[in-house]
Design a protein around this nucleic acid. Structure first.
Length: 554
RNA sequence: GCGCCUGUAGCUCAGCUGGAUAGAGCAACGGACUUCUAAUCCGUAGGUCGCAGGUUCGAAUCCUGCCAGGCGUACCA
């Protein structure tokens, strides 16, 4: 509908210029918005004000000229007016709204989809937690955001891949091996000193026990380094499979699991270091190799190979991002915790250094999660092994509630996650508020079938009976859905969907409380069934982008 | 010190991509179930958009400075 208004304005402006009523041929992009106040119409444009300086005319005069040349072949306009400093307001005739319902019924699961992405390959990498322990709530937020962003982009015509990067190399893996090995030795009765930097959680003991069950005390008879490596690989493999399961229980499935170690095994890390040395982007100083990230806006240069010859995490990160683009992605999106924000300049620098445009790489920084119970903070410390895992949260509050709550804030805003609140079935907890719409409508449809109604789809004559303000409000709100999806794709902001769904749900509940769908008038009942079924489809489509289920009963 | 993020109703947050009278939920108060699910709805009340300047027809939104909070600032990951 908005596009139609845009088209009308555009052609009118051209005609006004041709007839010399508007001197300049220069026109700004036409912005059309839905005014906050209903009395300002269904749509409004500020073009007359924005064009004032170019046209050298007062805004209201420009608006008059535009309105004079308006043509409306489809008869969708009920009224137009000039208001305030020069806004042009458009009032859509009631009958023009009904076809929105036809569109929803026709397009069904694809209502809201678009070709914004034109099939471009785009990768979303998220979670990518180190395989040294279970996922905690913070990872859950990253998972919800990343998964949803990927879903939304896919819905908008991008060819999306969801990827998980496994940091299965380097020091923390060695530390993991050491932690397990020490616990293993302790199980065999040896006196051990368990260092602070080792992983303290109970899961470490479980792995040690499993190794003992499987291998007996064989590990003591061989070279220690070899045993530690064995423990490391064993534990990492176990942790990854548990992470995979936790994510699966959370409704997140990745298209690809990418191993950091593979970058070393295939020589990609050393290749990129050599290549950048040749380009003088990497240089030697004090026995270490440095990447000149200051050339790309970083505060200082960063080490890629240490004095002792070991590569840093940054080295494999460079190779990793090179590899992503080599795999043919037009755009690469990383979802990181906000505590990693200092890494943006250096990774962006690496992307730019290899000749790629920096806007092909985006980082979504997700702020941290504060876990609460009844408003009281739950202390968490990863090092001490005391944390609430994602799995525990999902078990306690349910996957739908957890996912939805993670998406009720802009990712830039810190999130308080209250376990008790998440379980409450009240309006504090908007998941159920939205899901309830779906369930209620299912119930109406069931009742309708019991009464012998069969066809709930689009019917022009019936639909035109929908004249109640609440009905038109619902249709108008549903008409906005495709634009909401596009905007959340453009800005990579899933919370826009969440807020939209709450608004649509609110419109529906208000309607439900005021009007009956199943009435004595068969045509009216048919019209209303067509309406509520459309609402159900939009709710279902939106929830699916968030990875939340749409239940038929609650 | 420097960098990034945040500051909007009592609380939790939208709005920040300049637009008209700044919104929602919760909490408070008052109402609505013999009806398709009350996990719902209707109404009342609640504001110096952190502070001060600037940009312009117009600022919560953009710019500058200041104040407060969070995070970061490793040859750690």
């Amino acid at each position: 509908m908005k596009d139609k208004i845009k088209g009308i304005i555009e052609s009118s402006v051209l005609r006004a210029h041709k007839s010399k009523e508007l001197p300049s041929a220069e026109f700004p992009d036409i912005e059309v918005e839905v005014p906050k106040i209903a009395s300002h119409g269904d749509f409004s444009t500020n073009i007359a004000m924005v064009a004032a300086s170019v046209q050298k005319m007062p805004p209201r005069k420009i608006a008059e000229a535009i309105l004079k040349h308006i043509e409306d072949p489809g008869h969708i306009l009920a009224k137009t007016e000039i208001a305030g400093p020069g806004f042009i307001n458009f009032f859509i005739s009631t009958g023009a709204w009904h076809p929105v319902l036809r569109k929803i019924h026709q397009e069904d699961v694809t209502y809201g989809a678009s070709n914004l992405g034109q099939g471009k390959k785009i990768q979303v990498e998220f979670v990518s937690s180190n395989p040294t322990g279970p996922l905690h709530v913070g990872h859950g937020r990253g998972a919800a955001v990343g998964d949803s962003v990927a879903n939304i982009l896919r819905c908008c015509g991008y060819d999306v891949q969801k990827e998980y990067y496994i940091n299965d190399s380097g020091r923390q893996i060695n530390t993991l091996g050491q932690s397990v090995y020490l616990r293993y030795k302790a199980l065999l009765g040896e006196e051990i000193q368990f260092p602070q930097e080792c992983y303290q959680g109970d899961y470490i003991r479980d792995y040690a026990k499993d190794i003992l069950d499987r291998k007996g005390k064989a590990l003591l008879d061989q070279d220690e380094a070899q045993s530690i490596l064995f423990c490391a690989r064993f534990a990492a493999r176990r942790i990854i499979s548990e992470i995979r399961k936790d994510l699966s229980d959370f409704g997140v499935e990745f298209d690809n699991w990418f191993s950091e170690q593979s970058l070393y095994d295939t020589g990609k890390v050393s290749a990129v270091v050599e290549a950048f040395k040749d380009k003088h982007i990497i240089y030697e100083k004090e026995g270490a190799l440095w990447f000149k990230t200051t050339d790309f806006g970083d505060e200082k240069d960063r080490v890629v190979v240490r004095q002792n010859g070991q590569t840093t995490y940054f080295a494999s990160d460079i190779a990793y991002h090179m590899d992503k683009f080599a795999r043919g992605f037009d755009r690469v999106i990383d979802v990181w915790g906000a505590d990693h924000h200092g890494y943006i300049p250096r990774v962006t620098g690496a992307v730019e250094a290899s000749g790629l445009s920096r806007d092909r790489f985006n980082v979504i920084l997700v702020q941290l999660v504060n876990l609460l119970r009844e408003g009281e903070p739950i202390a968490m410390s990863t090092r001490a092994g005391e944390f609430v895992t994602l799995n525990e949260v999902v078990k306690e509050v349910g996957r739908d509630a957890a996912r939805f709550i993670f998406l009720t804030r802009h990712y830039d805003s810190p999130l308080d996650f209250d376990l008790e609140l998440a379980k409450k079935k009240t309006n504090d907890n908007p998941v159920f508020y939205v899901q309830y719409v779906h369930a209620r409508i299912s119930s109406i449809l069931r009742k309708g079938r019991e009464r012998g109604m069969r066809e709930f789809g689009w019917d022009k004559t019936a639909a035109e009976m929908l004249q109640e303000p609440e009905e038109l409000q619902l249709i108008k709100t549903m008409g906005r859905y495709p634009e909401v999806v596009e905007d959340s794709a453009k800005y990579m902001e899933p919370h826009r969907i969440t807020f939209y769904l709450m608004e649509l749900a609110s419109c529906f509940h208000a309607y439900y409380n005021k009007h009956r769908v199943l009435t004595d008038d068969p045509t009216l009942s048919k019209a209303r069934l067509c309406l509520v079924l459309a609402v159900q489809k939009v709710i279902r489509n939106g929830l699916s982008l968030l990875g939340v289920s749409a239940p038929d009963k609650m």
